[in-house]
Each structure stands twice: as structure tokens, then as C-alpha cells.
Write a protein that binds this DNA or RNA. Structure first.
Length: 393
DNA sequence: GAAACGTGGGC
DNA sequence: TGCCCAAGTTT
């Protein structure tokens, strides 16, 4: 077990050579220490894992839901969503017969809403094609919407205890540091794959998989706790003091800003106008306030945009209630919220005359029940509780 | 195949 | 405050 520490960050030998250098003894060292660490310091109370003390059996549906929620999302964030989701949809059949709106409502705030839409569609796939039972079949699982290679492997390893090696963000971080591998993401994954399979503990794929992910998430994280690590002497990144540089960060692109006006039509019966956003694009299929693009890319003049522009220009009594900044991964959204007092009749006429499909006239209280983007939900909550209205009405 | 797709937390 | 990051998949 003395060859892992001969790996170099630069002039990396061919990966085939690296693989040959890794002896069975080293693999066992890694697996044993990792599993021992997991036993001691791993997360054993995750609600999608069976609790042994209660003699719980593995529930593949719970594993599946958790894997989808955990995509690009940390465990602490997922926990409350998972509990609410499972309470509402305990089985694939429950999920399949729910409306997409119900599913999106429970997903509200969790982000990446295509996950919820795909999950809902996949539950119907599962019920129709597989009688609601996830089969131990990579190709079949992989065909379900929202399940890619990583999630398929995770389900097979975690749910069926089968020797499928995952290569997710955690495993990638761990293995790049151990090997000192530096490469662009796609090439990196290609070269890391054989390592992930070599290290996989085939006697216990489920625990091993959870162990290496816990290890990556809690110890070998972005700012790793190397002082507590059992792999120091075998970790190329640690030995070469390059822990902070590995994995290599991709070059960042600049972050554009989009400015919009949000329109709060408001009638004497406390009704407002909401738009169900198109499936494609940001916040797909969620309900949001009518918005007018002020500045940003792909300026388009839809009929509704023209109407809202006219509205903003024509109403002298509009009030600017709030300004919002919302940071997405790839751009910043600036929004100004305008209140436009109108009559019920005006709103109804507006909807029908302009044929505003996907628009709904609802009371503020009903609006709270619809799935919405998080910043819009926060605005409407403030409005409903009058905290915004009191100061600015 | 690069870009799109959310949000809350760390610093 | 502003920027970076986290259990990826889809188009």
C-alpha cells in the first residue's frame, strides 16, 4: 500500500499505469478504513435509508425520490422537503395520480423544477410500464425521466446493493484528490470511471456508496478537514499540498443581469393576476406575477408583453411596492414590483380580450396555494400578511 | 456539447 | 455585498 503516494499532480502517468500501481492491498485499505470511518462518523439517520433498529426494509421509492431531490442539492436542504413529499405521496401510485401542480407545490423552494416535472412523469412511466416497481435493471431505470447515469447507478447500488459504481460530485472530489488528477470535467470523468470501479467494495456496495458520499460531503469537501483524514499518506493532493487546487475549478463565465417589471394587478375584491409560466425556461410551469422584460437578452414582444407595457405606461396610480434582486446560478434577476389598482371587470376584460391563456385571476389567498418561484412566493406572503401593503399602500 | 436550470448557505 | 458552491439531467 505504498504506491498511491507516488502519484504526481503534473506529468501524471497514464491512467492504465496508475491502475496497475494500485494493488489489491491498497484497495482493501481504502475500503476498510472508509467503511470503518462511515460506521463511526457517517450519516446513519437519513430518512430514505431503512432504520435497522426499527427493522425497516429498504424502500426503493424513497431512495429514488431522495436521489432526485439530492441532485445538486445538499442533504440538509432536502430533509424537510423529503418528509413533506413522502407524507403527501407515499407510493409511486400516489405520485402518479397527483396533479403536476400538487407536485410542484411541494417542490416549491427546492429549485430545478424540471426535476419535479420529470419525477411526476416518471412515476406515471413506472406505474404503467413496471407496475410501480423499480426493477434492478440499469437500462430500465435509466429510461425513467430525470434519471441519468449517476442516479441510475446510485439507485442500483443503494437500493439493490448491486456493484454499480457511482461517480457523483462527492466521489469525483474524493478520487481526484487521491489520484491528483487534473483534467476538464468530461475527460476527468472518463478517466475517473475505472478508479471508481476499482475502489468499489463489491461485498457491500450500498454501504460503500453511502460511505464515500458521506466522506466527500462531510470530510473531503470543498474545504476539506484533512487533519481528521485517514488517507493523508495516500492522498496525492494532500502530499503535494494541492488540496485547495483539486478538483480544478472551471473558468467562470460572467453573470448577466436581467431586469423585469412585475405587475400586481389588484382589484377591489383582492384579486390578482397570475401567469402560469411556459414549461421551457426558468421556473417552468410555476405561477408567477405577469412580468415585462425591461432589459436582458432575447427581447420579445409577445402580446402579453405589449399589454403589460401599456398598463405600466397608462396607469398614473401605479405604485412601486418593492425592488428585488434574485441571484441564479447563471444570471441575476432584478425586478421592480408595481401595484396597479383595477376593477374586477377590467381584469376579466383584459384576460378575455387579449386571450391570455395561462393567466388566472385569483384572490391573494388562493394565490398562496399555487406553486410559485421562491422570490414571488415571498412577495405574495408579505402582501397577504399586509406587511408590504401597510407601509406602501 | 455547451448552456440552461434554483436556492440557501459559506465566507 | 457579491460570488462560489452543492448527491446532475436535459436539450
Amino acid at each position: 500500500m505504498n504506491n498511491l503516494n507516488t502519484l504526481h499532480l503534473e506529468d501524471l502517468p497514464q491512467d492504465e499505469t496508475l491502475l496497475q500501481q494500485i494493488t489489491q492491498k491498497q484497495v482493501l485499505y481504502f475500503q476498510e478504513h472508509l467503511l470503518e470511518w462511515f460506521e463511526r462518523e457517517g450519516r446513519h439517520d437519513l430518512p430514505w435509508k431503512p432504520q435497522a433498529q426499527f427493522s425497516e426494509k429498504i424502500n426503493l421509492y424513497r431512495i429514488w425520490i431522495s436521489e432526485i431531490m439530492l441532485q445538486q442539492t445538499q442533504v440538509v436542504t432536502v430533509l424537510p422537503y423529503f418528509e413533506r413529499f413522502m407524507a403527501a405521496f407515499p407510493t409511486p401510485e400516489d405520485l402518479a395520480k397527483a396533479s403536476e401542480e400538487e407536485v410542484l407545490k411541494l417542490w416549491q423552494g427546492l429549485g430545478y423544477y424540471s426535476r419535479a416535472r420529470n419525477l411526476h412523469a416518471a412515476s406515471k412511466q413506472l406505474v404503467l410500464e413496471f407496475n410501480g416497481i423499480i426493477p434492478p435493471d440499469f437500462e430500465a431505470i435509466r429510461r425513467l425521466k430525470g434519471i441519468g447515469d449517476t442516479t441510475a447507478n446510485a439507485i442500483l447500488a443503494q437500493g439493490f446493493n448491486l456493484p454499480f459504481a457511482i461517480l457523483d460530485g462527492n466521489v469525483r472530489r474524493v478520487l481526484t484528490r487521491i489520484t491528483g488528477m487534473m483534467a476538464p470535467r468530461k475527460e476527468l470523468d472518463k478517466r475517473l470511471k475505472p478508479f471508481s470501479e476499482t475502489f468499489l467494495c463489491r461485498q457491500n456496495p450500498a454501504d460503500y456508496t453511502q460511505a464515500i458520499m458521506d466522506f466527500g460531503a462531510t470530510l473531503c469537501k470543498l474545504k476539506p478537514l484533512c487533519e481528521r483524514c485517514f488517507l493523508q499518506q495516500y492522498c496525492s493532493a494532500f502530499i503535494h499540498e494541492k488540496v485547495a487546487e483539486i478538483p480544478a475549478k472551471p473558468i467562470k463565465k460572467k453573470n448577466p443581469t436581467e431586469s423585469v417589471a412585475l405587475i400586481l394587478y389588484w382589484t377591489e375584491t383582492n384579486q390578482i393576476l397570475l401567469e402560469k409560466r411556459p414549461t421551457k425556461g426558468i421556473w417552468g410551469n410555476l405561477y408567477s406575477l405577469p412580468e415585462l422584460l425591461l432589459q436582458g437578452k432575447d427581447q420579445k414582444s409577445t402580446s402579453s408583453a405589449i399589454i403589460h407595457e401599456k398598463t405600466l405606461n397608462d396607469f398614473p396610480h401605479k405604485k412601486q411596492l418593492a425592488n428585488i434582486r434574485h441571484q441564479f446560478t447563471h444570471y441575476t434577476l432584478e425586478a421592480s414590483l408595481f401595484k396597479i389598482p383595477v376593477s374586477d371587470e377590467y381584469l376579466k376584460a383584459l384576460i378575455s380580450s387579449q386571450n391570455l391563456k395561462n393567466y388566472r385571476m385569483v384572490t391573494v389567498n388562493d394565490a398562496l396555494l399555487l406553486p410559485k418561484p421562491q422570490p414571488i412566493a415571498e412577495l405574495l406572503n408579505q402582501i397577504a400578511t399586509n406587511s408590504l401593503a401597510q407601509t406602501l399602500w
